[in-house]
Design a protein around this nucleic acid. Structure first.
Length: 556
RNA sequence: GCGCCCGUAGCUCAGCCGGAUAGAGCGGCGGACUUCUAAUCCGCGGGUCGCAGGUUCGAAUCCUGCCGGGCGCGCCA
C-alpha cells in the first residue's frame, strides 16, 4: 500500500531529518511513547543525529519539527509536533490518521501483519521427537506448544515451514521397552514374568501389552520371559508402533500436526549411518582410540571429541544423528531449527560440528533450548520419572486444564526461563487464566457486531473519520498498528511469548475502550469509526490466537 | 572446575541489537452491574532492575568480575 499512513509519516520524517542533518538519513525510528502526555507517536531521531552532526539534539529537533510542519504530505495526518526532554519529537496525530489506520487494518483483516519476514526461507522445524517408549510429559508439552507456535508464526511471516518429528525407534531403549511390554503380556497370560530392572513400569506399558494380546492372542505364550530374537523384535517393534500412535493421538488433541515423520531405524538398515561415518573418516575427521571410533568435533568448535562407534562395534546415538542431520541438511532448503529440552543443550556443539565437518554452514542449524518445566502439586515439588511411571503426561495436563489454557500457559513465558507449573493451582485458577481474558475480548467484539447488526447498522460500512479521538481509542489503535512489527519480531526471534504478551496488552486496551465508549449508540461518524476498531481488534486477536492454536470464541 | 539459561514489585513474569518518570497479571485495600457480555472496568499501595566496577550525553538493556538458583559436562539416549 503506497499511501499507507505510516509510510507517509516515515518518509516525511526522513525528508525533514535529512534536511536538518545535512546528510541523507535512511530510516527514522517511530515509536509510541511510554507516557500518553508525550503524544501519540515519538521519535528520538534528533538524539541519534546529534552525534554525527555534532550539534545539540534539541536544535536539530527544532529544525525537524519546522520542516515537518511545512510538509503538505502530512498536514492532514499530524495535529501537532513538539520537542521535549533531551530532544525527543512528540507527535499528536489527527482523527484522519486514526481513521486511515483503522480502515487499513480492517481491509487487511486476517492478513494484517502477514508476510513480515525480511527474507523468506524454507525452514524445517523439528520438535518433540520423544522416543516411542512412553507418552510425552509436561516438558514435551512445552516443547510441542512452542514448536508448533513457532512454526505457525514463521509461516505467518512468510516462511515455508515443514514440521518434522524424529522417531528414535532403534537401540537399547527400544529393546528394554519391548522386554517390558513382553513381561506385561506374559503376566496377562498368568505367567510369572518380571519387568527388567531398568525397564519401563508405567501403566501405559500394560495398556500396550493388552492391545498386543488382542492382536496376537497367545502366540508368544510360555516364552515371553525368554524370547528369541524374533519375539523380542516383535514386542519392541509393534509395541513401539502402538506407542507412537498414542503419542501422535495426544499431540493431535493438542493441535499439533507434523508434515514429516522420520524414523531412526531405516538410517541403520539402509547403511546410511555407516556411509556417513565412512565419509567423515575419508575426510579425515575421525580417529580410532582404544578401539572406539571418534569424531574430531573439537576441530569444529565442540568442547571435546565424541564417540561414533564404541569399542564393542555398536554405533552411538550421535552416529544416527549424523546421518539424520546430514539428510535434513541435504533435503531441506535454508534453515533447520531443532527444539530441544535444556537437558540436551550439550548437544548443540556436536550437531553444528557434524554440519561443519561435512561442508555445510553450521549456522543453517539453530538449536532452540527450552528450559524445563518443574511440576508442583499444591506447592510441593513433584518428581517425575518415565521409567517409574510417575510423570504427568501431556494428555493428563490437557484433560486437567484444557487445550486452550495449556497452550496459552506453556507459551506465555520466554522459552529460556524455567517454569513452575502447579497443577493444583492451574486447575483451580482456570477461571482466572489470562487466556479467558483474551478470548473474552474477542467474544465481546463479536457481541458488539451482533448488536450492531440487530440494530440495523451496516457493520461492514467503511470507516468514518470521527470528530475527535479519545485517549482509549488512541492507545487501542496504536496497538493495532503495532501488530505487524510484533508478529515480525516474534518470528525473527522465534519467540511466541511476544505474541501472547501483545494479545494481553491489546485485550486490556480493548476492555478499557469498551467500558468508556459507546459503540452501537454513538453518533454515526463515531459509530462507524468504533465499529472499525471493533472489527480490527477482532481480526487481530483472532489472528494472534490462531498463531498459538488457541480458539477465538464468538460467545462466552 | 568448565559450558548454557535465569536473577526486575509479596508471588509469577514482560521489557534486554542503549533513550523520557521501569511495566503487566496474580495477591492486598477501596469502588463500578435499571445502560452494547462484570470471565470486565476504575482507583490506591507496592522497586538498591542480584552485587561491584567499566563503556557514554544517557544503562534493567552493552562489557568485565563476583554472588545465588536451574540444567548439562558417558564408549547412555
Amino acid at each position: 500500500m503506497p499511501d499507507a499512513p505510516h509510510e507517509i509519516l516515515h518518509d516525511a520524517l526522513v525528508r525533514a531529518a535529512s534536511a536538518a542533518a545535512g546528510a541523507p538519513v535512511p530510516r527514522v525510528e517511530i515509536t509510541p511513547p511510554a507516557r500518553p502526555e508525550h503524544g501519540d507517536l515519538a521519535t528520538p531521531v534528533a538524539l541519534g543525529l546529534a552525534k554525527v552532526a555534532k550539534r545539540p539534539p534539541r536544535q536539530i529537533a527544532d529544525e525537524v519539527v519546522a520542516a515537518l510542519r511545512g510538509d503538505p504530505a502530512v498536514a492532514e495526518l499530524v495535529d501537532g509536533a513538539e520537542v521535549a526532554g533531551p530532544g525527543f519529537i512528540n507527535l499528536r496525530m489527527s482523527p484522519a490518521w486514526y481513521a486511515r489506520i483503522v480502515s487499513g487494518v480492517v481491509a487487511a483483516g486476517a492478513g494484517h501483519g502477514r508476510g513480515g519476514a525480511q527474507r523468506p526461507e524454507a525452514v524445517l522445524v523439528e520438535f518433540v521427537s520423544v522416543n516411542p517408549t512412553g507418552p510425552p510429559h509436561v516438558g514435551h508439552a512445552r516443547q510441542a506448544a512452542l514448536g508448533d507456535s513457532i512454526a505457525r508464526i514463521l509461516a505467518f511471516a512468510g516462511h515455508r515451514v515443514t514440521r518434522e518429528y524424529y522417531v528414535n525407534d532403534y537401540g537399547r531403549q527400544m529393546e528394554l521397552f519391548g522386554e517390558s511390554v513382553a513381561a506385561r503380556y506374559a503376566q496377562l497370560l498368568g505367567e510369572d514374568a518380571r519387568v527388567p530392572e531398568d525397564g519401563y513400569r508405567g501403566d501405559y506399558v500394560s495398556d500396550v501389552a493388552a492391545i498386543l494380546h488382542v492382536e496376537v492372542g497367545e502366540r508368544y505364550a510360555g516364552r515371553a520371559g525368554r524370547l528369541d530374537a524374533d519375539g523380542r523384535g516383535f514386542f519392541a517393534r509393534r509395541g513401539g508402533e502402538l506407542m507412537l500412535d498414542a503419542i501422535f493421538a495426544e499431540l493431535e488433541a493438542f493441535r499439533v500436526h507434523f508434515d514429516v515423520v522420520s524414523h531412526e531405524t531405516p538410517l541403520h538398515v539402509s547403511g546410511d549411518v555407516e556411509r556417513r561415518l565412512d565419509e567423515l573418516t575419508a575426510a579425515g575427521h575421525t580417529y580410532v582410540d582404544e578401539g572406539a571410533l571418534w569424531f574430531r568435533s573439537s576441530a569444529f568448535g565442540d568442547e571435546k571429541d565424541r564417540v561414533l562407534r564404541r569399542a564393542n562395534g555398536v554405533t552411538t546415538y550421535l552416529a544416527a544423528d549424523v546421518a539424520y542431520h546430514l539428510d535434513k541438511a541435504e533435503r531441506m532448503g535454508d534453515r533447520m531449527i531443532d527444539i530441544l529440552g535444556a537437558d540436551h543443550h550439550g548437544y548443540i556443539g556436536r550437531l553444528k560440528a557434524v554440519l561443519a565437518a561435512s561442508d555445510h554452514d553450521p549456522d543453517r542449524l539453530e538449536v532452540l533450548i527450552v528450559q524445563l518445566v518443574s511440576l508442583l502439586e499444591d506447592g510441593e515439588a513433584r518428581r517425575m520419572s518415565k521409567r517409574a511411571g510417575t510423570l504427568v503426561t501431556l494428555g493428563e495436563l490437557v484433560r486437567d486444564i484444557g487445550v486452550d489454557a495449556a497452550r496459552f500457559f506453556l507459551v506465555e513465558r520466554s522459552s529460556d526461563t524455567t517454569m513452575d507449573l502447579d497443577i493444583g493451582l492451574a486447575r483451580e485458577q482456570s477461571q482466572e487464566n489470562p487466556v479467558y481474558y483474551v478470548q473474552y475480548a474477542h467474544a465481546r467484539c463479536c457481541a458488539l457486531q451482533r448488536k450492531a447488526a440487530e440494530a440495523g447498522v451496516d457493520v461492514a460500512a467503511s470507516v468514518a473519520t470521527p470528530g475527535d479521538v479519545g485517549g482509549d481509542e488512541r492507545a487501542l489503535v496504536a496497538r493495532l498498528a503495532e501488530w505487524p512489527a510484533v508478529a515480525a519480531e516474534a518470528a525473527a526471534r522465534r519467540a511466541p511469548h511476544r505474541v501472547v504478551a501483545y494479545l494481553k496488552d491489546l485485550s486490556r486496551e480493548f476492555h478499557a475502550f469498551y467500558h468508556r465508549s459507546q459503540v452501537v449508540d454513538a453518533p454515526p461518524a463515531e459509530r462507524a469509526f468504533r465499529l472499525g476498531i471493533v472489527a480490527a481488534t477482532r481480526a487481530v486477536i483472532g489472528t494472534g490466537l490462531d498463531l498459538i492454536a488457541v480458539e477465538a470464541p464468538e460467545r462466552m
